[in-house]
């Protein structure tokens, strides 16, 4: 399952940027539309962090809501999927947010 690979890449990216410091907390943003299950990332994190500088660190997952902008009238609204619907009648949308997958910040000793 790919939450495992994603969790491993979170740990690798933090280690690459933080170096030798001990990490006590990691804050990540996961967009609601990424089809990544936060609880699965949480599940993998403790296991994957063992033996790294992130061992024992707390993982905070910030879920970013989906927002879509109608290509017909420009109206922007919250979007949970699967089908966006605009009051103007258009079904044609650009996604503004909800696809994020990023490490926002860490706390280190």
């Amino acid at each position: 399952m790919h939450e495992l690979a994603i969790t491993q890449s979170i740990i690798a990216a933090v280690t690459e940027h933080i170096g030798e410091l001990k990490v006590t907390r990691v804050v990540i943003e996961v967009g609601a539309l990424t089809s990544i299950a936060p609880h699965a990332v949480q599940f993998c994190f403790d296991v994957c962090a063992k033996g790294t500088n992130l061992a024992g660190a707390e993982l905070e997952i910030v879920e970013v809501a989906g927002r879509a902008r109608c290509r017909g009238c420009g109206n922007e609204s919250a979007f949970e999927g699967p089908i966006p619907w605009c009051p103007c009648g258009s079904l044609n949308f650009d996604l503004v947010s909800g696809h994020e997958l990023k490490i926002r910040e860490v706390e280190v000793l």
Partner: peptide, 15 residues
Amino acid sequence: DEGGSRRVRLELDLL
């Protein structure tokens, strides 16, 4: 300092 730890903003896009 927040109880001995420091915050580091990374803003790393994994994709």
